[in-house]
Simulated scan of single mutants.
Amino acid sequence: MKKFLCVIFASLIHGSFYSQAAKKALPCYDFSEVLKVEPTLLYKPHLDASKSFGVKILQDSKTVLKYINNGKFHKIKKSGKGYHVQKLDYSRAWMVSKGKLMLEKMGTRFSKDTKGNSFTVSSITRTLEDQCRLRRVNSNASLGISSHNYGNSFDISYVRFNGVLKYNPKMEAALEKVLKYYYNLGRIYYIKEKQQSCYHITVRNY
Score class of each variant (00 low, 15 high):
residue 70 N to T: 12
residue 144 G to M: 04
residue 134 L to E: 13
residue 165 L to P: 03
residue 58 L to Y: 01
residue 120 T to Y: 01
residue 38 E to D: 11
residue 15 G to Q: 03
residue 153 S to Q: 14
residue 115 K to S: 04
residue 89 D to L: 13
residue 86 Q to M: 09
residue 106 M to Y: 02
residue 134 L to H: 03
residue 186 G to H: 00
residue 122 S to E: 04
residue 18 Y to W: 06
residue 24 K to P: 01
residue 60 D to A: 09
residue 144 G to I: 00
residue 73 F to R: 09
residue 9 F to E: 14
residue 114 T to Q: 07
residue 196 Q to A: 09
residue 152 N to A: 02
residue 108 T to S: 04
residue 201 I to F: 02
residue 102 M to Q: 02
residue 94 W to P: 00
residue 155 D to L: 03
residue 143 L to A: 13
residue 179 L to Y: 01
residue 150 Y to E: 06
residue 17 F to R: 15
residue 185 L to Q: 11
residue 184 N to F: 05
residue 2 K to L: 15
residue 61 S to I: 13
residue 154 F to P: 01
residue 49 A to G: 08
residue 92 R to A: 05
residue 91 S to F: 05
residue 152 N to I: 03
residue 63 T to W: 00
residue 145 I to Q: 08
residue 114 T to E: 03
residue 47 L to H: 06
residue 61 S to V: 11
residue 186 G to Q: 02
residue 188 I to E: 00
residue 88 L to I: 02
residue 193 E to D: 09
residue 48 D to I: 08
residue 68 I to K: 13
residue 21 A to I: 00
residue 16 S to E: 13
residue 4 F to M: 13
residue 200 H to Q: 03
residue 144 G to H: 08
residue 197 S to C: 11
residue 4 F to T: 15
residue 178 V to E: 10
residue 95 M to N: 04
residue 45 P to L: 02
residue 32 S to E: 14
residue 182 Y to E: 01
residue 203 V to H: 07
residue 111 S to Q: 07
residue 6 C to V: 15
residue 68 I to H: 00
residue 142 S to Q: 08
residue 26 L to E: 14
residue 110 F to Q: 06
residue 99 G to S: 04
residue 3 K to F: 14
residue 13 I to Q: 13
residue 164 V to S: 07
residue 98 K to C: 08
residue 139 S to G: 10
residue 113 D to Q: 09
residue 124 I to F: 06
residue 111 S to M: 06
residue 104 E to T: 15
residue 104 E to Q: 04
residue 47 L to M: 03
residue 68 I to Q: 09
residue 168 N to R: 04
residue 169 P to H: 03
residue 9 F to S: 15
residue 177 K to P: 02
residue 33 E to G: 03
residue 191 I to W: 05
residue 116 G to A: 05
residue 91 S to H: 02
residue 188 I to P: 05
residue 19 S to D: 12
residue 28 C to D: 10
residue 57 I to Y: 02
residue 201 I to G: 09
residue 186 G to F: 00
residue 109 R to I: 08
residue 80 G to T: 06
residue 94 W to I: 01
residue 154 F to G: 05
residue 49 A to N: 11
residue 157 S to I: 00
residue 83 Y to W: 00
residue 52 S to A: 15
residue 173 A to G: 03
residue 60 D to Q: 07
residue 174 A to R: 04
residue 28 C to E: 11
residue 201 I to W: 00
